[in-house]
Design a protein around this nucleic acid. Structure first.
Lengths: 163, 163
DNA sequence: CCTACCGATCGGTAGG
DNA sequence: CCTACCGATCGGTAGG
């Protein structure tokens, strides 16, 4: 909180005229990010694209969110653990739900033969890991534009690195 | 340190009969893990497998390390930031080197036509992100054996999820 | 929005 | 290996 105050140019105790507490701040960031992702998933589910397109659209959304809202996404990805109950449980429920809905898309895609057979859970968690990890190296991709980054990642994940 | 002491069943100050400091402990874990990965990369480079096989072997090693040495790998992945200088810089140099060597393998593979053309940096960082993220959900894969997990992830990353 | 300050926690030392 | 304790840091309050 003292760092945050200094960044704004006020003393730490003055922060408490604007926010209720540190945990309230954490709460609002985590749930704001969560609802953005959920809203996009809602839209994807409503469309009648094929399941490959749906997953691709979700992947692209994750990549864009990390590139454009880095700080908030980072906090939501790393600091949610320090959420206080009942918010911690609530957040985890939202996340589990999100994952389940993605897994359901993968399952339909496998049934249709669009997606390779295999464990849908592994597919989805691996895809989510791959895009999430971008937050760790996004500052390291000098000379590569955001759209090249996005397209290369999507190609890699949909068709692999093998030629 | 107090938690650690309790887990062992002694008082916190007694820990200091066994270790020099908290940061020394962190240092030894981070560099032990780093050297294990580097040693494996050395071996991979010495073999004359094709470049696809080399990358696959590295991916498999990462997955196995996470599954079998979870705690240490987790610390090395997350707490290295708190390493004190000059160890922080040293650690980062090791990691950058490791990444560069993997990227060099990808570059050769692209030149040979084994690997899809594209930015080798993006390929490698995405692969590393994908396997690293396993640490976040490895406790979530009930009913899936380690070898199924490993094989499914490798298939996904080498050939994509699209059928 | 600030000064003054509090209680809790944390890594670690002294002395045995 | 323990008791007693220290200095630094942190989220936050009182009172203006």
């Amino acid at each position: 909180m003292r760092e945050l105050a200094e960044a704004i140019g006020i003393e730490a105790p003055s922060l408490y005229n604007y926010i209720g507490s540190k945990s309230e701040l954490l709460h609002s960031i985590c749930f704001k990010v969560a609802s953005t992702f959920i809203q996009h998933l809602d839209e994807v589910e409503r469309k009648d694209d094929d399941n490959i397109k749906k997953i691709e659209s979700i992947i692209r959304f994750h990549i864009r969110m990390i590139l454009k809202n880095f700080d908030e996404v980072f906090v939501a990805n790393h600091e949610w653990k320090h959420l206080q109950e009942p918010y911690l449980s609530e957040f985890l429920t939202l996340r589990r739900n999100y994952e389940r809905r993605m897994i359901a898309i993968a399952e339909k895609g496998i049934k249709n033969g669009e997606i390779k057979s295999g464990q849908p859970k592994i597919i989805i968690f691996t895809l989510l890991s791959a895009v999430r990890g971008l937050e760790l190296w996004q500052n390291n991709k000098k000379n590569i534009s955001n759209s090249t980054l996005e397209n290369n990642m999507v190609t890699l994940l949909t068709t692999g690195f093998k030629n």
